[in-house]
Write a protein that binds this DNA or RNA. Structure first.
Lengths: 330, 330
DNA sequence: TTGAAAGCGCTAACAT
DNA sequence: ATGTTAGCGCTTTCAA
């Protein structure tokens, strides 16, 4: 924070008051054209840069949104943050992104940081169900994306979510239509999406009159370290003929194990698409999430709430699109 | 920026002055133990949260670093930003990341934003060579990462770079050792890394007494849209037996085209590694960049410079590690 | 050990 | 159309 030219310096140069400079710089209509011109010129020549902190503190508005994401290395969240930055930027808002690594304590710290930076609102992809959001957030506008807030407070917040049940059903149905009889699942440890995806899996099985088997329902550790052996367990020991991975990091773990298996014998499905899935020799059926829409709606809703804190809370459920690789086979 | 409990409220409750509250909250040793305890309790009960903006404006330090990256969807920069956040966080600094989409005007806006937010220093991956950084940056500490600043001002800034010449040479050598005779290159449009990688390519050819051919040296558009047809042009029309892609997004473009070609006939190399390259049927020889080190050194250097602006500028060149897929063949 | 007062840079009443 | 003044929330002399 190098000490810089301030409004005072410009005022002195221009021989006017600080107030007039402020007005001129903010293009207030009530300042004479030539004064404005003169002041703006002087400001430019002096290399004046407004101090946004001072401005924010004065007007009680930072024009900054906070975004809390659990994993910045996961392409889903990167794309989501990109979408959110775009939409927020259009509306004149900056976005402060903080990564929690799926840790509750890091999330708490992240929220505190956001408050210190005086964000006008928060977009949260929750790292867990145990946080006491009402206490942490107070009356700060917040929208939950991708993952629901804890059940007991869910109605207090806006949510922008994907239809995980439908997306999973579509995938499992596709696998079944192609002949799969015994479909293993490696679910994620994230409660809110995991529960829904498991439900979709069960409903699809039931609709096809297939019996679920707890022995082929596994849950990945958050860091994904146990996914490769789970894949082996399900495909080899449990003789599954298909495998559903509940998100793209899990599918990556599965692929890490697959080289020594005979892939042509299995069908693969995953929630969440990845561009590079197209380059793999084995086709993967995925449900592609409407990431740009998730981001757009989340921002729009948050800005609306910042504008009017009386807005009733709402849940948005967006459909996922099935990508039935190989495409020709559709 | 919801109006919140301030120091004044805590002071009133505690029956002390604002100054004492400030001291107590900052654990000043010169405040009596029980007063401190009492004040901290009251603050907690009241749900007091410090206003970091007010603090920053007063102490003239934001404890925030700005990071300017050209493409948040590129895994290289995501990993880099993650590394930078980690190291900065350890040192008590937050990081404000802004994406430029390789646009010079967006970069200029990003830098202005950083100034408004009063960042203490800047980590820049430049979007182009034409910016007048000394004018834009003034005396604000800045470190350039991955890409050099414009040649005429390069010595004014610290740089943390990868040895692009060496990395490329290693890749080309590997391809040649495996029998490649005619190696096409699709280079990126980013001048600073592209020049170096092209030089490495030429030097490796020369060392192997292979004649360079301008007909098989192509440059990708920044958005990558013309990469697939370039790949076809080089591999089919120009009858290359190997192809070198100068970064991972270019390689992705190449793969987009490859499905209809007979891959087994070609060797592939790329600067910049990707995890999922391991899952592809065709092996890709890559140079893996030391991303964590790049980030760590950049932050350390920036903090050192924030501490002492007299520090002489310096260039760090980090080696890239060749990944000679298939690994067994090493 | 604590308090009073000034001031960081800015904007918004309220003058004039 | 412009100036004066106060104050956003905080820290930091200087005094007591």
């Amino acid at each position: 924070m190098s000490t810089n030219i301030t409004i005072k310096d410009v005022a002195k140069q221009a021989g006017v008051s600080e107030a007039t400079v402020s007005r001129a710089l903010n293009n207030s209509p009530q300042v004479k054209r030539d004064t404005r011109q003169k002041i703006q010129n002087i400001a430019r020549n002096l290399g004046y840069r407004p101090n946004g902190l001072a401005r924010s503190i004065r007007v009680q508005k930072s024009h900054t949104l906070g975004m809390i994401i659990p994993d910045i290395l996961n392409g889903f969240f990167t794309q989501l943050s990109r979408a959110i930055e775009d939409v927020a930027g259009q509306a004149g808002y900056d976005v402060l992104i903080v990564n929690t690594d799926e840790h509750l304590d890091k999330e708490a710290k992240a929220i505190n940081l956001m408050f210190e930076k005086q964000v006008d609102g928060l977009i949260i992809t929750s790292a867990g169900a145990s946080t006491d959001y009402p206490r942490m957030l107070g009356t700060t506008p917040a929208v939950f994306v991708d993952r629901m807030p804890p059940a007991n407070v869910v109605s207090q917040y806006d949510r922008v979510l994907v239809d995980n049940v439908q997306g999973t059903q579509d995938i499992i149905n596709c696998l079944i239509n192609r002949g799969a009889q015994r479909i293993g699942i490696i679910n994620s440890a994230v409660s809110t999406t995991a529960t829904e995806r498991l439900r979709g899996y069960h409903q699809a099985l039931a609709a096809a009159h297939l019996t679920p088997d707890p022995a082929i329902e596994a849950t990945a550790r958050t860091d994904g370290s146990n996914v490769p052996q789970m894949a082996r367990q399900l495909l080899v020991n449990q003789k599954c003929d298909a495998l559903f991975a509940a998100d793209n990091t899990i599918m990556t773990g599965v692929l890490r194990k697959l080289p020594d298996l005979d892939l042509s014998a299995f069908q693969l499905g995953a929630f969440d698409d990845n561009d590079w899935f197209n380059f793999l020799p084995q086709p993967i059926v995925t449900a592609k999430q409407p990431i740009a829409d998730l981001g757009r709606i989340a921002v729009e809703r948050l800005l609306a709430r910042i504008d009017d804190d009386q807005l009733p809370t709402q849940e948005f459920r967006l459909a996922a699109t099935i990508i039935p690789r190989p495409m020709s086979d559709q």
